[in-house]
Design a binder for these strands. Structure first.
Length: 724
DNA sequence: GTGAGGCCCCTTTTT
DNA sequence: GGGGCCTCAC
């Protein structure tokens, strides 16, 4: 047996071999957290005489769960089947599939992803004739989700004003709609699983008895409901082992509540928090930069990472004139790194938002550098795949109105908007699902509706005896989707993806199904749940040596030899949205901290003076995060003149210039020294950037962003601006 | 009922 | 820049 305890440092060893009690491990980036978790489980099984079935392990992503399981399998030569390991959502799904009756759900309940949920909210609002301007669907959706994440049903929400009352009404109507259709959204999975245990003492006792050891990774990213669920699950004899890093809490926007760490410490009587502070990943300069940056946050439990490895290279900082130039810089450096023997898979390009990837992709593509983009539009989120899944959902659950609306007339079969409306009215009047109402229609489109209904019935009957993959193949073909996309001009890729879906069904093996849900769930429901819960990481080109591109969020937990952290601009990173959110700036800083600590040996930081965003040119100042990293750690690859002048600016947001302002041209030609984007200096306000202009000659005025001094409109004739 | 074309809107991160 | 939604012509 090979736990290799001798390779652990004293703190890691203490965590792994902690006697039977609750534990909180504060584990810094790169401190061997996953190793500690897996070794802990192995140690419990081996030394603590616990069977894998007594262990529940919660991870943040499905990928992390798979990785941990693989590592465990290498350590322990026993069957790990009985162990529950997965994400909160995956585990909740599993529990609800087992106890669907107690949870008040149909056996084949379907899971709505965010897109589906938004569509469902829109439909509910339409049904209530709600004013979509006053109650934007997105806001209603996020209201519902945040209430659920706090564990509140519509009836539990404290109503203080009329506006809230409306939102609560929508919440109630939405829940009723979901109940009638047998569908469950992400937050609902968690809330149902929580309520299931809360109400059902027998079940609660059963699980409390069973799970002697509950281990939770990325504890800082749990929300309040998840924390309460864990508390319910933990019996008298259960021990919780929570691992987290408050400095890497980056999911507050979806309800993560890093204060759970402190609360856990109090409520579970943790007398000594174990701190893992030795970093095994990054060179000294990179770690020093991360430490200096995060020191600017006030809300911290406090911890300082150190490394025994050398200082390494300084951080390389590049100021680009434009986003295109930034991309070209990346291309050049990546080539240089390759020449030095680095594999592309060991190099990552990170960005704050998905929209930034396009320019970089373009540059990589024209330079023939293979790359792989993570996230963005994921496989199971593509329109053609969602269509195929909608057919499958109707086969599994005829009440799924979302699915009905998606494909009743796709591909077109003569069921227009007017007809759909009539079906909806009939369904409402008779209290049936749309599919049932469709079959009962007597209108002009009745034959089309009847044949659609017949198609679904036929698929259901034929699928009954078929293996999953053949069922998917049949549905994809019989739905007419393939034919439809073949006839479309750029439909080739979509046809290919539909073929991929059949492959995905084929590789969705017995083992996966069992590890994700439970043996008695029917394969189709299990596959559909899998599609909803794990939208991503099913992409072609896996295994090829390719440059890794992803958002900072999806880079969490990963590491690379070289990292490019791009778009370090005020307004982009930190994102301007964060300025108006509570503690938004600190979350952005943690995000930057996560990004920096991904790098082992080399870290590039870049920003662009101008950037095309949403079809508009933006002029931005360098991110405050750049200046929060000590000068001694950085090496500027561009002339320092601009950089120094700019750092004197301090911070401010970035600015968009309105489209279609012909004055700019006139203005520029009259005053050759000034143009939009020009750096200027003002006697009183200091350095700034021209972000807008209007008027001519003596009346000419410019709008200048002076960073901390604010944004001012100045008359050019009066202000005595110096070109900088 | 269908499909093309145009307008308007948004625009962060994800299980 | 792109997707959702509307209008209009067939």
């Amino acid at each position: 047996m090979s736990l290799h305890l001798e390779h652990l440092n004293p703190e890691q060893l203490a965590a792994v071999t902690l006697p039977e009690r609750h534990a909180l491990i504060l584990a810094g980036a790169g401190s061997g957290k996953t190793r500690v978790l897996t070794t802990r489980i192995a140690w419990l099984v081996q030394e603590g005489h616990v069977s894998p079935g007594n262990v529940l392990a919660v991870t943040f992503t499905n990928k992390a769960a798979r990785e941990m399981l693989a590592r465990l399998a290498a350590m322990l030569p026993i069957n790990l089947r009985g162990m529950w390991m997965g994400t909160f959502h995956g585990l909740a799904n599993r529990m609800l599939r087992f106890h669907f009756r107690d949870a008040g759900l149909p056996q084949t309940f379907q899971i709505l992803d965010s897109q589906d949920q938004l569509a469902a909210v829109k439909r509910m609002l339409k049904g209530l004739n709600a004013d979509e301007d006053r109650f934007p669907p997105r806001e209603v959706q996020s209201f519902i989700n945040s209430q659920k994440e706090e564990g509140l049903r519509a009836g539990d929400v404290h109503v203080t004003d009329e506006g809230t009352r409306r939102f609560v009404d929508f919440y109630a109507a939405y829940d009723e709609q979901c109940r009638a259709e047998g569908v469950v959204d992400f937050a609902e999975l968690l809330l149902r699983a929580y309520e299931l245990l809360k109400r059902n003492e027998v079940l609660r006792e059963h699980y409390a008895e069973r799970f002697r050891h509950i281990l939770i990774d990325e504890f800082q990213d749990t929300n309040r409901l998840q924390y309460r669920w864990l508390k319910l699950l933990a019996g008298r004899d259960s021990r919780l082992f929570a691992v987290g890093d408050d400095d890497q809490s980056i999911y507050a926007f979806r309800g993560a509540h890093s204060a759970n760490m402190g609360q856990f410490e109090r409520e579970f009587g943790i007398d000594r928090v174990i701190r893992l502070e030795q970093n095994y990943r990054s060179h000294g300069n990179i770690l020093d930069a991360a430490n200096a940056l995060i020191a600017n946050n006030r809300n911290r439990l406090g911890k300082n990472l150190w490394t025994a490895s050398g200082k390494g290279d300084p951080l390389r900082v590049f100021e680009a004139g434009s986003d295109g130039e930034e991309a070209r810089f990346i291309v050049e450096e990546v080539r240089a790194l390759q020449r030095d023997g680095n594999r592309l898979a060991e190099i990552a390009v990170l960005y704050r938002s998905n929209a930034q990837s396009r320019v970089i992709e373009h540059a990589l593509f024209s330079s023939s550098i293979p790359y792989r983009v993570y996230g963005g539009l994921r496989f199971f989120e593509r329109a053609e795949i969602k269509h195929a899944l909608a057919y499958l959902r109707l086969v599994g659950l005829p009440d799924d109105d979302n699915a009905f609306l998606r494909v009743a007339n796709f591909p077109p079969r003569g069921i227009g908007a007017r007809t759909i409306e009539q079906v909806q009215d009939a369904a409402k009047a008779n209290g049936t699902s749309l599919l049932v109402a469709a079959a009962a229609s007597t209108g002009r489109a009745a034959p089309a509706l009847a044949s659609f209904r017949a198609l679904i019935d036929r698929l259901k009957a034929e699928c009954a005896g078929l293996p999953l993959a053949e069922c998917v193949e049949l549905v994809v073909a019989a739905s007419g989707l393939i034919e439809h996309y073949k006839a479309e001009r750029d439909g080739a890729e979509r046809v290919e993806n539909l073929g991929e879906l059949v492959n995905a069904a084929a590789t969705f093996t017995e083992e996966e199904r069992e590890s994700e849900t439970g043996a008695e769930v029917d394969p189709l429901s299990a596959f559909l749940a899998h599609a909803a819960l794990e939208a991503g990481e099913h992409q072609a080109g896996e295994g090829q040596d390719a440059l890794q591109m992803m958002t900072v969020h999806s880079a969490k937990g990963l590491e690379f030899n070289a990292v490019f952290l791009t778009g370090l601009e005020e307004g982009l990173f930190p994102h301007e949205q964060a300025f108006v959110e509570r503690d938004g700036l600190e979350e952005e800083r943690r995000l930057a901290y996560v990004a920096i600590t991904r790098a082992r040996e080399r870290l590039y930081l870049s920003h662009a003076q101008t950037r095309m965003l949403h079809g508009q040119m933006r002029y931005s100042l360098p991110s405050r995060f750049l200046s929060e990293i000590p000068e001694g750690l950085k090496k500027w690859l561009t002339p320092r003149v601009t950089s120094e002048r700019r750092s004197a600016l301090g911070s401010s947001s970035s600015w968009q210039v309105p489209r279609k302002k012909e004055e700019h041209v006139v203005f520029a030609s009259e005053r050759p020294g000034f143009r939009i984007g020009q750096n200027v200096v003002h006697a009183k306000f200091g350095a700034g950037v021209i972000v807008d202009a209007e008027g001519h000659g003596e009346d000419a005025r410019v709008q200048v962003n002076f960073g901390r001094q604010g944004v001012k409109w100045l008359a050019v004739a009066v202000a005595k601006l110096q070109a900088a």
